[in-house]
Nucleic acid binder design. Structure first.
Lengths: 196, 196
DNA sequence: CTTTGATTTGAACGTTCGTTCAGATAAATC
DNA sequence: GATTTATCTGAACGAACGTTCAAATCAAAG
């Protein structure tokens, strides 16, 4: 027997996922052919099928991987009990994590509709888990009389939409550094929920 | 000569645009074939070319029409001088206008990348015009000492992202009526910018 | 009822799609 | 150096793609 380790798949596998992620984000799932992905990797289209059973699975794995990483990195964060501090930490975390992965964030929102129903439900559930973490912070802040929030569920959606919106215009070469943007959003979020 | 009025195009034309809008929103521009649109209209694919020179123009016309209507309806709104009242009016207007047109809003965000560069710039300019209206309200509120905003440009993007985010979860059958949602967002937006 | 021209059909075009697979290639083990 | 097997090529499959166009259809004007 031969070559049980060190085969090309260690290199090609990640390259396939990277190319697919970039192309799906730029052109959309339906507009990207397996041949385009293969060309980007430097391989023939047939070779891709050593790394994914089909195109749909490739998309799902990217979305699933993104959500898994989001929840894993978040879970590794230290727990903060003070709602005000926790909200600031969530804000900074969300902006930073998403700004680093614009392609994955983009396809996570755009290509959900291209998932088969079962896969869709799967990803949707992970997103809800993440949203629930922010909602819990808001609920705690209200219980402690620190926050003034007309509807915690809606405030959760509003804050997340606001934060994720950074990705639509942020550029590393822009007017503001990411740390400055974090600061500004922390202020706005705090003002939006704080008891006066 | 015959049939200078009342021809079928009066019926088929709008049906083509409606079908294209719905299908583009549901499945994405690239995933929707001219044959699918034709089937939805109840016509053969070739007949579509009486109503659009090509598929790309069909997408552009939908986006352009949406933005034109947004700016036109907005321009017909009475001018409000008080920044606090103007901000509330903008909030309500944005939520209501966008909630009524979820498909057009969706493709306006998702399919921008499928526009040819010239068309992209065109639509992008109209969006900036709209955003500038909110930014002007924020600037005026700051000048009058009513608002406390760390960065008006970013606050503009944040508020618009927050408001447009309603479309990702709003349903007419949901827990809250649209008027209630408007109310909640007005509160949050006001709290987020108001001088304390 | 005939004429007229807007509208639609239905077939065809060259191209590209996702996927499969027998055979070629190449690297690690013996 | 021979063997083994993961990896990749290159061709092929039927299906679907956007678009074109001659011919058929049909409703209003004369």
């Amino acid at each position: 027997m031969a070559r049980t380790q060190g085969s090309h798949s260690d290199i090609t596998g990640p390259k396939v996922r990277e190319a697919a992620l970039r192309l799906f984000a730029q052109q959309g799932y339906a507009a990207v052919s397996m041949r385009k992905i293969a060309a980007e990797v430097g391989v023939q289209a047939g070779a891709l099928y050593n790394y994914t059973p089909d195109k749909q699975s490739l998309l799902f794995d990217l979305l699933r991987g993104h959500m898994d990483e989001l929840l894993a990195v978040r879970a590794a964060q230290p727990v903060i009990n003070d709602p005000v501090a926790a909200l600031e930490e969530f804000t900074r975390f969300h902006i930073r994590f998403h700004a680093k992965r614009p392609d994955a964030v983009f396809i996570s929102y755009m290509e959900l509709r291209n998932l088969e129903p079962e896969n869709f439900i799967n990803i949707e559930g992970l997103r809800r888990d993440y949203e629930a973490q922010l909602e819990a912070i808001l609920q705690r802040g209200m219980a402690e009389g620190l926050f003034q929030i007309p509807d915690p569920r809606i405030a959760t959606m509003a804050i997340i939409a606001m934060l994720t919106g950074v990705n639509t215009w942020y550029s590393a070469e822009g007017r503001l550094k990411l740390s400055e943007i974090e600061e500004i959003y922390c202020d706005m979020v705090r003002m939006a929920v704080e008891m006066k």
